[in-house]
Design a protein around this nucleic acid. Structure first.
Lengths: 246, 246
DNA sequence: CGCGGCTTTTGATCTTGATCAAATGATCGC
DNA sequence: GCGATCATTTGATCAAGATCAAAAGCCGCG
């Protein structure tokens, strides 16, 4: 009994938590939040911080996925490719999302950094061992899978039924709501994706994306400082252009 | 100790399993497979078989989702709608899939029977109670969520980057591989969806779907006996038309 | 500064799939 | 079996977005 109390006190004072973790931005948001100090130590012993440059491939389609990771900073594109090179981005992961595929040996997607990205990576065996002993961890992973499923289905509606204009507005709205998720819709932000990436996310061509951005700018829905920096004076108006009822 | 042995013997002989469950086609495939006889009894006391006709709405977009269900027979469409009526089917569920959204009070989708469908429905409170006590159950639900996520992402590639021809071929291939999942690709089958539904699944119009089916028929990739019944002499050829490398 | 290699924008034209319209085919009640 | 109704196919035209082409910006670097 005394040991239990001792443990919980240590948890509160963080004295048992590995130094790297105590300072980690994803400490509470990622998978780590549900772990005990003991488990966190176990995980951190096999974990490694890595920095990835924009365009850096983290895992290729069809490759063995032996690593899992928490995104500490940056945006990662998940994409699928047809044999003739046509590409579709099927998901964007923002910090502090967890990346990786529990209980599956090979990836059907490729993951590539869109921006400068920091991840905390660890081998699949470790996370699977922890899942077996920590009941809350699988719940956390399950919740993230459901969140990603919702996002994927929202995007299917965008891909299948929206016009080019609505698609581009939907993308801008998505970014505005994700750059700083705590603070609602950002008024001004940098696009983490190039025009080519945006096109691959929206199922359009670069030219169409560019034209629609120009159109939104001319209509005063957005302001474009340079090709990456965008401001949104009225997020409601952007939503309406995105076909989102508000 | 004796009690445990007694229980496992009863399980083997099914004597503790509710009559409805013992005869249930989804007994092993759905959520039920991981439950103990005791839990199965608990679940079945609150469960009700329901038959739903094609077009019957099971849960509307934005409604409270107070029921969960196993699909015993049939195909269910999950769809999303824009405020102006444009619709996108974002998933098809085949028996013995589990339907419902753990830990979320309201549905962002509507679920509607595509064919004659039998479900075994039970209140959300019961399943959530069982999840808390049966560790294997959440794992099963997690696996299904990941499977649906994979399917959603595959379909995003189809929606965003494939031609109308490839989309229709992809749909036919999907159905061929799902009508009788045990036996690989079916050579002949009934389409569970109308042309309008297929269009809503593929992000196309009814007319385009019809024209592409006609085209595939004229090219000898498929045979069409009546509008619902299709045969596929060479599944590899269908795959190639679907843009799937094989 | 000015050059070479990028990404992005803009322009002209073409193609795919949408739209509008009508004919054909299936199904059901009577 | 016979209309009525609904689903599907087929046809003619249109338009959104793709494609092809070139110009304009935007660096980093000598």
């Amino acid at each position: 009994m005394q040991i239990v109390i001792e443990h919980s006190r240590k948890d509160i004072h963080n004295s048992d938590i590995p130094v790297v973790c105590a300072a980690c931005e994803a400490r509470h948001g990622g998978v780590c939040g549900t772990l005990t100090p003991r488990q966190l130590t176990e995980l951190s012993r096999h974990a490694a911080r890595r920095r990835v440059e924009p365009g850096g491939e983290m895992i290729g389609q069809g490759e063995a996925a032996n690593n899992y990771a928490n995104i500490i900073r940056g945006v990662v594109k998940l994409s699928k490719m047809l044999s003739d090179g046509r590409q579709q981005i099927v998901g964007l992961q923002f910090a502090p999302d967890f990346m990786g595929r529990p209980f599956m040996r090979e990836s059907a997607l490729s993951a590539e950094a869109a921006t400068d990205t920091d991840v905390c990576a660890f081998p699949r065996a470790v996370i699977e061992r922890l899942v077996a002993e920590a009941p809350g961890l699988e719940h956390r992973l399950h919740q993230q899978a459901l969140k990603e499923l919702d996002e994927a289905r929202d995007w299917m509606l965008t891909l299948g039924r929206k016009t080019a204009q609505e698609k581009v507005a939907s993308f801008l709205y998505l970014i505005a709501t994700h750059v700083d998720p705590e603070n609602g819709v950002a008024k001004e932000f940098d696009l983490p994706l190039s025009r080519a990436d945006i096109a691959d996310y929206l199922g359009l061509t670069i030219e169409t994306v560019s034209r629609q951005i120009t159109k939104l700018r001319k209509e005063g829905v957005i302001r474009v400082d340079n090709s990456r920096r965008v401001s949104v004076p009225d997020s409601r108006r952007l939503m309406r252009h995105a076909g989102i009822d508000c």
